[in-house]
């Protein structure tokens, strides 16, 4: 069975990904907006679901690190930090000179691509479980550290040219104390310290219902993304192309880095997916305050309405196919 799954064609991989309940709920959300359904998530519910997911991922990662004998976590963390710090360095000139963006817009978009998307990470791990491929348990820690550097580097890129620059450490603090990094790192610590015994206690609430909660969350994400589709016409062809090609390029780099540092096939695939993903929670909140002159329509549309749906549907099976080429199971 397992052998059969690993030899699946790219088409089968796409099918498995698209027909998972999580991704189908995302489409359901898109349809809800398109047909102007009165379906609405109350704001507190959205907040509660995101808190649940972030804490659960963090704790799951903490338990996994505690239980595992895998080495290489430090190397993976350092590589993740460097990778997400470097991404804005090539995204920025592309946006600035090929896309003819002004400095603020270029840096703002670059920051989003340097940072990562937690939900894309979850979709990637869901995909791996569906096809029965193993990955290293320390990835939630990587997600937490990869949220920050891209944003800081992008801010440094434009920092000097501005009248009233926000000091980078202020933004560093904003991201670090923001709920996503806080809950991920906090959850990791709680999971690590409480260990297997702790895990048994919280399993029925935090682990077992996880995918169901993720379905609800993606339903809302589908609605959020499709509300942005109207902006696609406004933002122009360049950013649409960028929103598809940039993640593919970053995924390939991420997978290569993963294979260089000796991650498993599944691990390299996840590192690639993280590198390809664009943030739409930590980055927009930080950038809106630190670079208010940048247009939210540009950075939100590209990360939420282009890159996120692309990664969720085509990106994930594509990156896995690439990882499978490069790294034998």
């Amino acid at each position: 069975m397992r052998q059969g799954r690993l030899s699946m064609s790219a088409l089968e991989l796409i099918q498995i990904n698209l027909f998972s309940p999580v991704i189908l709920c995302f489409f359901l959300g898109i349809i809800a907006t398109l047909v102007k359904s009165d379906l609405r998530f109350p704001e507190p519910l959205y907040q509660a679901l995101s808190i649940y997911l972030l804490l659960a991922i963090g704790m799951k990662g903490g338990f996994a690190i505690r239980a595992s004998t895998e080495s290489g976590i430090l190397l993976a963390l350092v590589s993740g930090i460097i990778l997400s710090a470097l991404i804005p360095l090539w995204a920025y000139p592309i946006l600035r000179f090929m896309g003819r963006f002004n400095k603020a817009d270029a840096a703002a978009v670059a920051a989003h691509y340097g940072s990562v998307s937690v939900v894309t990470f979850l979709a990637a791990t869901t995909f791996l479980s569906a096809i029965g491929v193993h990955y290293e348990g320390f990835f939630p820690a990587l997600v937490a550290v990869m949220e920050i550097p891209g944003i800081i580097v992008a801010l440094l890129l434009i920092g000097r040219s501005r009248e009233e620059p926000t000091p980078w450490f202020e933004s560093f603090y904003t991201v670090l104390s923001g709920k996503s990094v806080f809950l991920l790192i906090g959850g990791l610590a709680v999971g690590y310290v409480s260990g297997e015994q702790g895990m048994t206690k919280v399993e029925p609430f935090l682990i077992a219902p996880f995918h169901g909660v993720l379905c609800l969350f993606l339903l809302e994400m589908g609605m959020l993304a499709s509300r942005r589709f109207g902006d696609l016409k406004r933002v122009g062809k360049f950013i649409i192309t960028f929103g598809v090609l940039m993640p593919i390029a970053n995924a390939i780099i991420g997978i290569l880095v993963g294979s260089l540092i000796g991650l498993s096939q599944g691990g390299a695939f996840i590192l690639g997916t993280l590198a390809s993903s664009a943030s739409y929670i930590a980055a927009p909140a930080t950038i809106r305050l630190a670079v208010p002159e940048a247009s939210p329509a540009l950075y939100l549309t590209s990360s939420l309405a282009i890159t996120f749906p692309f990664n969720l549907t085509i990106g994930i099976p594509l990156y896995f196919t690439i990882a499978r080429w490069l790294i034998p199971a």
Binding site: E43, E220, P284, R288, L300
Partner: peptide, 19 residues
């Protein structure tokens, strides 16, 4: 107080993080 509505700038950047 929490408020909802629309204005000349259209949708909020932070539309899903408190309108």
């Amino acid at each position: 107080t929490a408020a909802e509505g629309r204005g000349s700038r259209g949708v909020r950047a932070s539309e899903w993080e408190g309108r």
